[in-house]
Design a protein around this nucleic acid. Sequence first.
DNA 1: GCTTGATCCTCTAGCGGCTAGAGAATGTAG
DNA 2: CTACATTCTCTAGCCGCTAGAGGATCAAGC
Lengths: 140, 140
Amino acid sequence: MRDLPIGALSERTGVKVPTIRYYEQAGLMPQAARTEANRRTYSTQDVDRLRFIRHARELGFEVDAIRQLLGLADQPDRSCAEADVIARVHLREIESKLARLTALQAEVQRMIDECAHGRVGDCRVIQVLADHGQCVSDAH
Amino acid sequence: MRDLPIGALSERTGVKVPTIRYYEQAGLMPQAARTEANRRTYSTQDVDRLRFIRHARELGFEVDAIRQLLGLADQPDRSCAEADVIARVHLREIESKLARLTALQAEVQRMIDECAHGRVGDCRVIQVLADHGQCVSDAH
DNA sequence: GCTTGATCCTCTAGCGGCTAGAGAATGTAG
DNA sequence: CTACATTCTCTAGCCGCTAGAGGATCAAGC
């Protein structure tokens, strides 16, 4: 219920001031109440909401997904099936990124391992880049 | 040595036409020779260079790193130590992304597993997002 | 030669998710 | 009353493209 200026909200949540304004603009945070001098004021509820947003971003949820999750969180009596779906879709995205990254890791590691540390002309790093056919997987 | 228009280069490499122009602008591809009517023309060397670029992008190398790798590839007699360093730095970046993503995967998976499929008010997905303290790892 | 449609040109603007800076108005401490 | 910090709005930049406008040029068919 306290009247926090944006800087205090920033400190309490670890979200930078311009980012908070950006979230307001993006529709994640509500239009903040203003003082007479046009400064934004926040309550402890806003602190909670911003922490929610921050945590979801840290977990890699996109702004659009967070908007949906926040919409759900505001209606505690509805079924949470939708939240479940959003999280599952996100999990699938994480898993596919993981698979890709793992393949890349192997390929780049192999590239480095095969480098004989001689001249550029003989360097496997350069050669592999020049020719996809020399790759083990075709995940990329 | 053939005089390829940009569309043919695009087909041969799988890189879209506007992207090729962007690479020229970004200094990855050289300023292309032009016909009398001001159209870009390319040789088979350009095909090779663009394939190199594309492959490196697919392996996640940033444009800046590719610029450096291309600079090295142009000097086959130099030591390939620099190429090695670029690749190793990139590998480290991949590994750190992998570590982060793996932690996120576990967290989101757990969130989903704990969801009792009831009301939003009781949903673990929402609760976990609202409170970082409920996370297992603090990787994020 | 003439029309059609594909290809090409340049230029500008947009995506996501911020981040940085200008320039002006307030707030707070000594 | 003077500093200095904080806040405000607005604009522009980051990466690596992608999309679209509006115009010039090409190759093929009649």
